[in-house]
Amino acid sequence: MKKLVIALMAVMLVAGLAMAEKPALEKPVTPYTPNGRAAEVEPNDDYMTATPLVLDDDMSAAINVGGDLDFFSFEATAGLVVNFETHPGDVNDTRMYLYDVDGTTELAYNDDGGQGLYSAFTFEFPADGTYFIEVIGYSATHEGTYTLTAREDLPCPTPENNTCEGALELVFGSSFIVDNCGATNDYDLPFGGCTGYPAHGLDLVYYVDLVENQELTVTASTGYDNALYLVTDCADVENTCVAGVDENSGSSPETLIFDAADAPGRYYLILDSYSSAGQEDEWEVTVGGVVATQQTTFDGLKSMYR
């Protein structure tokens, strides 16, 4: 009877673990290369043995065995706003906690706020003191490396072209660099939309007026997994998207190509990203395109003024 009870408990435990499993990632995460400024010192299994973490250091760390706890101490001043994030190594899934100066009172928690199944959160410290961050694997089966970063979250003004109402003109033949610091997530694409994947990042918007058979080519890159899409109605980006691209998993350039054919008019280009983590970074954008023939362009212009 005792063996039967133990067997039933084992089955229930396995079933519970199976229920806790997360769905597979739609896309692989982008590998992260730490700046080599800091490394975890074991043992650091509680706040009394925490490894010091400072702003702008990339802390190389690891969950050495299932259930390993990693504690880090952080010196903060009142009003300081910091983004803490775990970055991809081979642990695959982390959870992260922030504790008050007593080392036990929980102030913040996150599971999947970063890339893929990695954790991230932003916190404003209420007072001067030494606070503590704890990083663990999602479950006892998660072991491996990760990088922990602490970056000051400096406020930026909202860009003029954060939404379609303030969209800036795309100039053919131009190249430019733009920073999305201060942008917000105003436009989203669902999984399977015109880029093939979700797009839940920070948005910048540009407009372009195309004539018949005019081709637009936009190549853009940034430091994370970016997405580009072209819409005709910003109030319904999902259903009016005419072209989109998100072919790469990392920071490689994406190129969007669109031919206006027999649909001249105004289009809106949205610079977005796959991740909802809200990365702020610089975009490098190049705008090109061709007109099929001079006569076609002339005919298109005539049709617009009839």
Rank of each mutant, 00 (worst) to 15 (best):
F176P: 00
R306A: 03
T105R: 01
G144K: 06
Y268V: 04
F84N: 06
K22M: 10
T130G: 03
L170D: 15
E215D: 11
F191C: 14
Y32V: 06
D203S: 00
L216N: 11
T222E: 03
A261V: 02
C241Y: 04
P23A: 14
A243R: 05
G300R: 00
T149V: 07
M12R: 07
D56G: 07
N83H: 09
Y118C: 04
T158P: 13
L4R: 14
A277Y: 03
A277Q: 13
I133E: 01
S174G: 03
I177D: 04
T255F: 01
D111E: 11
A235V: 03
E247H: 14
H87K: 13
T195R: 12
E124P: 07
L154T: 13
P155F: 09
L148T: 00
R37T: 05
P155W: 10
M48P: 08
E282S: 03
A292I: 08
V135D: 08
G67Q: 01
T122S: 13
D56H: 15
F191N: 08
K27R: 15
D179W: 03
F125M: 10
V242G: 09
A220M: 11
A243G: 10
D90T: 05
S119H: 08
P126H: 08
E254W: 03
S249K: 01
C156Q: 14
E85V: 15
E26D: 14
E152S: 03
P159W: 13
T77V: 10
S119R: 00
G114M: 07
D299H: 04
P155D: 15
D93E: 13
A140M: 11
Q214S: 01
L148F: 02
G129Q: 05
D128C: 12
L4Q: 06
N44Y: 05
P155S: 08
I6F: 13
E143S: 02
K2R: 08
L269T: 15
L271K: 00
G173W: 01
R266W: 14
T94Y: 00
S60T: 11
G193C: 11
V171H: 12
Y32S: 10
G114Q: 01
T105Q: 00
D281C: 10
D68G: 02
E21G: 05
T222N: 07
G223Y: 04
P88G: 04
V245T: 04
Y97F: 15
A39H: 08
P31S: 10
L210D: 00
N162C: 15
V41H: 11
L256C: 02
